[in-house]
Design a protein around this nucleic acid. Structure first.
Lengths: 330, 330
DNA sequence: GGTCATCATGTAATCGTTTACATGGCCGAA
DNA sequence: TTCGGCCATGTAAACGATTACATGATGACC
């Protein structure tokens, strides 16, 4: 109980071989009931814990999956991770969470180093070659890579922004701006495209001043508010590529003396926890984050444990609009 | 390059022994420059990646530390984790993040299973016996356990709440309520004590209706708002045990037609990212989260790599008050 | 020139499991 | 009774690295 007990210690105490101890613990049906009890008693008495390095080495699997998040500080991801953990837990797998922003140099050792059997990748900015080199199953969540044939779970971002634009148009807004995400990001591109499509569909025109730069963060939303406020004939409605930037935008408008939704209607994208409690509560496109995590984890677990081949396409889960207080009739 | 290459493959390609390969990679100074180059070329050619299960097993260390967080969805923790990762990265250690809420049953196998060499524990509600059984160095962050002699890093919660109460008192508030945290939590207790102390010091009395129940969450803050609004002669200032509950409180007040800070002044605790962007921006007690993470990680790394003994007391880092728009003169 | 330290490298034991294969006991069928 | 099959268990060979110890070369010093 004091120092680390090994399986041989348990075997000695129980009066059986190490093989029997191993089987009693991982395949209880394969040993006699009496022996099993003896082993379990010995385990309790010695305080034995399996050494997972040894186990992983011998069995050539880690019984763990890794969730690779672009930025842990972004609250959007936590709900996804929570449901991944539920699924993995039920399957007897451990979840390791890493931040790809920090793991930079270590990134290319990921699968091959044997620390995890599969990866849930929430970062679409990684090099496709690096990912291909991991050598373990990978499922993308929300974002995706340019590489074709990679399994993934996410929403239809074009359609999502369409809901937002449609909502503002229905409220009588004619000049609708778009506060975008970081250039080069697949979500930014898709949502930007959704804006263009939806404006055309609604018969509205996009003026140069209707495109506001951002990068999903609150700070970028605040900066965009200054640009917007300084523009003549500025838009009366703003669709944002993320909730955080929407909140930053509204917040900075407030400091400039402009009220939402009286002076400007704002729609977000994501539906993070804070949006419902903001003043005003944010109208936004709700993403089913729990479903993303659950479904992605289920795909990975099925591939790992039952050999079910991973799909070669993204699974699309629909988003829907949540109308709250940040949008009003023009 | 295709299938997994082992160290023996690299050795063969480079024309040296496995021992030399191992040394060339982990102790570059101990091999000749020419040999080192040969090995590195062979590594590149074979696509070799060290198998960490084998390495961990043989060297009896995991080169990893675990951060155990009570709830990943709480944005308070992300900044702490980020600075932990910086320190660990510089020391060549991997950071594994786990949610103690989910890991429940697996919790007791933590250190002993050899997956990590040390633990940063952000959850003060764990059983002290379980923690003692881990058998690896543990440093508490923010919260702490009842067990004495355990190293930790955090702030003086009593003093922190004192700043908040003092601020409201200085603004002329005489009836100051306290929106507490979950019962039994060490932070709740300390902050509750800070409220009692500070009220006494300011010569103010605490009436029964000045104690509002909460659990750090936005929802609990919202519920407390109803209680507060329904109370006759309710307090004019509210000190909250967390930012989230403060934001929930203000948000719900707004829905009830009561404005902050005109109808009530509110102070939070934590200074999470959203607080600065709330409307109104939240006056709150700022916790140096980056410093918490950095200092705790440094203690652990020093203990792990240089054998520096861990302190037997908590390291206190001062908090300070950030005055924003949610408090006003009575 | 002999001795010894130093250095680069090789040989092989070792870390703690899992698991393929072997063994022996027991039981039912022929 | 004999044989085959099944079951519970034991024996020992992996898994893939690190590292204590051994070896041989080199060069400094007296």
């Amino acid at each position: 109980m004091e120092t680390k007990a090994r399986i041989a210690d348990v075997a000695r105490v129980a009066g059986v071989s190490t093989a029997t101890v191993s089987r009693a613990l991982s395949l209880p049906d394969r040993v006699g009931a009496e022996t099993r009890d003896k082993v379990l008693r010995a385990v309790a008495q010695t305080g034995y814990r399996v050494n997972s390095a040894a186990r992983d080495l011998r069995s050539r699997r880690a019984r763990a999956i890794t969730v690779l998040v672009p930025n842990l500080a972004n609250t959007f991801f936590s709900r996804i991770i929570a449901s991944v953990q539920e699924v993995a837990d039920a399957a007897g797998l451990t979840v390791q969470i890493s931040d790809s922003m920090v793991e930079g140099p270590r990134l290319h050792t990921f699968g091959r180093d044997g620390r995890s059997d599969g990866i849930l990748l929430l970062d679409g900015t990684l090099d496709a070659q690096t990912v291909a080199g991991w050598g373990v199953p990978v499922v993308m969540v929300c974002e995706w890579l340019d590489a074709p044939g990679m399994p993934g779970v996410g929403t239809d971002n074009v359609a999502g922004i369409g809901l937002a634009v449609g909502h503002l148009a229905a409220l009588g807004h004619r000049d609708i701006a778009f506060l975008g995400g970081p250039a080069g990001n697949v979500l930014s591109d898709a949502r930007g495209q959704g804006y263009v499509d939806a404006m055309a569909r609604s018969g509205l025109t996009i003026r140069p001043q209707d495109r506001l730069d951002g990068d999903f963060t609150m700070e970028s939303g605040a900066r965009a508010a200054h640009v917007w406020a300084a523009t003549p004939e500025s838009a009366t409605g703003v669709v944002c590529a993320s909730d955080e930037s929407a909140l930053g935008f509204i917040s900075e408008c407030d400091r400039l003396g402009l009220r939402c939704p009286d002076d400007v209607s704002v729609v977000g994208f994501d539906d993070i926890e804070f949006s419902d409690r903001f003043i005003p509560p944010l109208t936004t496109v709700h993403q089913p984050r729990a479903a993303f995590g659950r479904q992605a984890a289920e795909l990975l677990v099925a591939a790992l444990q039952n050999g079910v081949p991973l799909p070669t396409q993204r699974t699309i889960i629909a988003s829907h609009l949540v109308v709250r207080g940040s949008t009003a009739r023009r």
